[in-house]
Design a protein around this nucleic acid. Structure first.
Lengths: 233, 233
DNA sequence: GCAATAATATGAGATATCTCATACTTTTGA
DNA sequence: TCAAAAGTATGAGATATCTCATATTATTGC
């Protein structure tokens, strides 16, 4: 069981040239049919900083330019679930834009993260009337809903062995798998103990080889087979 | 493990007066900013009929007027997951409208079901440019994504005991719980054997009383407590 | 109305996963 | 630089859940 610790406020807002540089480098004009540039703030969050605190409504719609983040929810029994990862070109805060009543999940950056931030109070109405924006957001949300439905049904239908094989193949850098165990536990929803147990199994089956704190993928084929059964068709 | 059986084609399309009657009774003009009435077909599906067959792209966007349905997906290991229930005022086929590539889930009516059906080939482009429609759909999808995320994280964080208590309270008719066990297994993602085991526990704890094929809720309070821990804050 | 099918029911043994205790190592903050 | 915190590691026992076998009862199609 893990507890989420709140860090102090370190977010930076880029001004002037720094801001201008980002607006030029990442034009998102094509995502809107009205001029948003003047409303945009550019925010930078450090690694492990909370972009949104769980249970606290954000004041901005974010669009991630650089970096990665994680969506967390804390359950009443103290268990923490890592619901999903957020990557470049993802939205943050869209749920709160759309829904008056919504339990806000915590969002924590896992690398330095730079986002465009659109203040709700200045453009909520306009956003909700903007075809281009809504069409983009609709696609984004349909992807999320599909992804969550897949994760849900897979988590119930398959043991960790299969889901972990898939996760290893998806996150490995070349032949090296080196995700933090504690993060993976929260994401796959299993105990630390059990995760290590299945990793040890993979090693003794010769699929992986432990090298210090990393794992080398020695035999990808059996891992692919284990992961393959998750896919539909 | 259950297998989905395909039934023969029994769908009815309402014409003339029958059609007109539905168009009048259920105006959905407010969901679109262009005139859709002339494009609308009114479809009726019998109980247990497949509205969409798994793996087969539909030709319509549906909007459910009367009835209920279930979304199923079949995994490679033969397990079947009941991903969600569909109710009145829900959309069907919106994933296929938005995404060129998408694995279509099976949708089966669980009661007689009447829907409006908008043929993709006649209005896809218009729909994707319609603010009113997109805003509605965005809210619908954000709700779905949130709901699936909640189900996912709950399924990993809590044993059946808690999730079943919640399900019983949500589906009970007055004090009587009478869902089909086989459906509930698919929905909560547990084996038939285990479901009966936990139900028997509830009975021996005096929360439920078995009456023939139904269960009477004798003590709602402890069930509420079990269900309560699923909720955030 | 009957045969086939689906749903309910229960036992027994297997296994996937969790909890707790404890120890060691690495990273981090002041 | 050093103490605290976070991450890694492993054992042992508990429990949540699954599989399989088998029997009974209800529903359905023809």
């Amino acid at each position: 069981m893990r507890y989420l610790i709140l860090l102090r406020w370190m977010m930076k807002i880029y001004k002037d040239e720094a801001r201008r540089r980002y607006l030029e480098a990442y034009s998102i004009a094509h995502l809107f049919s009205f001029p948003v540039e003047e409303l945009i703030e550019v925010h930078e969050y450090e690694r492990d900083e909370w972009i949104i605190q769980e249970g606290t409504r954000p004041d901005f719609l974010f669009y991630v330019l650089e970096g990665k983040a994680k969506i967390y929810v804390t359950h009443q029994n103290g268990k923490v679930s890592l619901i999903n990862f957020i990557n470049e070109n993802d939205y943050i805060g869209e749920m709160e834009l759309l829904n008056e009543v919504y339990y806000t999940k915590g969002i924590q950056s896992s690398t330095k993260t730079v986002c465009f931030a659109l203040p709700f109070y200045r453009c909520r109405t306009q956003l909700l009337e903007d075809v281009t924006f809504l069409r983009e957001l609709t696609k984004f949300l349909s992807g999320k809903a599909t992804q969550m439905a897949a994760k849900y049904s897979q988590s119930l239908a398959f043991p960790l062995e299969n889901r972990l094989a898939d996760f290893i193949l998806q996150t490995a850098d070349q032949e090296i798998y080196k995700e933090k165990h504690v993060t993976v536990c929260d994401f796959l929803g299993v105990s630390y103990r059990h995760l290590l147990h299945v990793l040890a199994q993979f090693c003794s089956s010769g699929f992986l080889k432990k090298e210090g704190r990393h794992y080398r993928i020695v035999q990808p084929e059996p891992l692919y087979e284990l992961a393959e059964v998750l896919k539909n068709r």
